[in-house]
Design a protein around this nucleic acid. Structure first.
Lengths: 110, 110
DNA sequence: TATTTATATTGCAATATTACGATAATAAAA
DNA sequence: TTTTATTATCGTAATATTGCAATATAAATA
């Protein structure tokens, strides 16, 4: 069927899935890494940085933006992108939860 | 074309993408949350916990296991699952990097 | 206004993912 | 050894994702 049963899960579960799914492609990881490196840059710089065509990069940027992981401002006729802390803060708490669990627990199966 | 150009990206980018992609489904987030809650449990418990059929759950468990986010031990004829710190430690550093960047930086576009 | 520059959208082909019924495999118990 | 319980695999249908050429849109500039 191929359709995710989102209604059967909590809002939190769906939101975390959307955020992590948005990160789940090497091109989108590369975009995040590049934005950290240069702080902010226009879309064209990312196109030059990645081994993908402009429409493909535009599509990846859209997915990151929809998830709330990046944001873009108009800079003349170009669009300047940078990280959006909103999205990352939402994931942050989940990972903190996981990490504190793994540290305090001898994590072993049955 | 639908095929990700993994060879064009670094090993680190591909690895982070595999890990985050594996988390990118509400059922797999729910599995991780449940394992944190009960520490470890057999596959059948997860099937009862989720609104999905047994083969579907089995498939999600396989993906989490392949990514290195959970591990399973034989417990009689059942299999006991728990979190695998290996996978989570790999993501941990990436998020620490992102978070320290976002904290130290007035994150604004151009 | 026409042109250039920068980005988004459309349309499509190839591939991947999601979900589940049916069935196989495995190990304990009767 | 047969049965039962537990999990994995196979096969398949429906949907989603990836990638790009072609094209559209929007803003600056000539």
């Amino acid at each position: 069927m191929g359709i995710t049963k989102t209604t059967y899960f909590t809002d939190e579960q769906n939101e975390l899935a959307i955020l992590t799914k948005a990160m789940g492609h090497p091109a989108r990881i590369a975009i995040i890494q590049h934005l950290i490196k240069v702080n902010s840059c226009i879309c064209g710089d990312i196109v030059n940085e990645l081994p993908l065509a402009q429409p493909t990069v535009s599509q990846h940027l859209k997915e990151l933006k929809n998830a709330g992981l990046i944001k873009g401002n108009f800079e003349g006729n170009a669009i300047c992108y940078c990280l959006d802390e909103n999205g990352f803060n939402k994931i942050k708490h989940f990972f903190q939860h996981i990490n504190s669990y793994l540290e305090n627990q001898k994590n072993q199966c049955c």
